Computed example of a mutant assay.
Amino acid sequence: MAVFDHLGISVVDLSRGIAQFDPIMQALGFERTDAESSVAWFKDDDTTELILFPVREPEGGPHVHGRVGWQHLAFAVDSRDEVDRLHAIAMDAGWTAVRDPRIFPRFNDRYYASFVEDDSGIRIEFMHNPPRAADA
């Protein structure tokens, strides 16, 4: 059984959220399904889902990183090149770079990642953290 079934995120402007999330989610291999007042992306035979909803209280946004609530969602990918590719896709879709792709030695010497933020203050990370090579 999956640890997480779905993640719902409220965004300030649903149309803008779709424009920013869709290229990334498609690049990660998710399929999009539109509903009347939301949009969802599915993966792995519908066992993983990310859903965007319009915000209920427009005066409440955008989210501010570091306050109570959302921190970030990390997408684990298979290579540094994939981190770079997804970061470029996010930039093209209007996300803001928080941290450009690089090694983060404070985690370990293999941890390569980038962080981006959308117009609603939602932060995501693309990361590659291969296992430590076995000692010979």
Rank of each mutant, 00 (worst) to 15 (best):
D119C: 01
D34F: 03
R56K: 12
E117N: 07
I9G: 01
I103Q: 10
G69C: 00
E82F: 01
E31K: 12
G66H: 03
W41R: 00
M127D: 13
L7H: 06
I9P: 01
P62W: 01
P62L: 02
D135L: 12
M1E: 08
R56Q: 15
E59R: 07
F4P: 11
S38R: 11
T33A: 15
M91D: 14
D119W: 00
T96Q: 15
F104G: 07
Q26A: 15
H65Q: 10
E36W: 10
S15L: 07
I122G: 04
A133C: 00
F126H: 05
G60D: 14
Q26V: 14
D5S: 14
Y112E: 08
H63T: 10
D100H: 10
H72K: 07
I24L: 14
E49F: 00
A35V: 08
A19C: 03
G94H: 01
F42Y: 13
P130G: 07
A76H: 10
S114P: 06
W70T: 08
R85G: 09
D81M: 09
L7R: 03
P23D: 04
A90S: 11
A93S: 11
P62E: 04
V39C: 06
A74I: 02
R16E: 05
A97D: 15
E36H: 10
D118V: 05
A133V: 12
F42M: 12
P105V: 08
A113D: 06
D92I: 03
V39L: 04
Q20I: 03
S38D: 04
V3I: 15
V83T: 06
Y111F: 13
G29W: 02
R32W: 09
V3K: 09
A134K: 15
E117R: 10
F107P: 00
I51T: 13
P105Q: 03
V77E: 09
E59K: 12
F107V: 14
S79E: 01
H87S: 09
D46E: 10
D46F: 07
M127T: 13
V55E: 11
V68W: 12
M1Y: 05
Q20M: 12
A88S: 14
L50F: 10
L50Q: 06
F75S: 02
A76W: 01
E59C: 01
H6T: 08
R99H: 11
R132C: 00
F42N: 13
A113C: 08
S79F: 01
R80M: 10
A90F: 00
F75K: 06
R106I: 11
I51S: 01
F107M: 11
T47E: 12
L50W: 03
R132W: 03
Q71V: 08
D34T: 12
V83S: 02
A97R: 04
R123Q: 15
A136Q: 12
V39F: 03
L86G: 02
P23K: 02
V77N: 05
R85F: 02
L86E: 05
S15K: 13
S114G: 08
W70K: 11
H63V: 07
G60I: 00
D109H: 09
F30D: 06
R106D: 13
T47R: 14
I51Y: 03
P105R: 08
D5R: 13
E125L: 01
L52Q: 05
R67V: 00
F115Q: 07
R102K: 14
I89K: 04
D22F: 05
A76M: 12
Q71F: 07
P54Q: 04
G94S: 04
R123V: 14
R80L: 06
I18S: 02
Y111S: 02
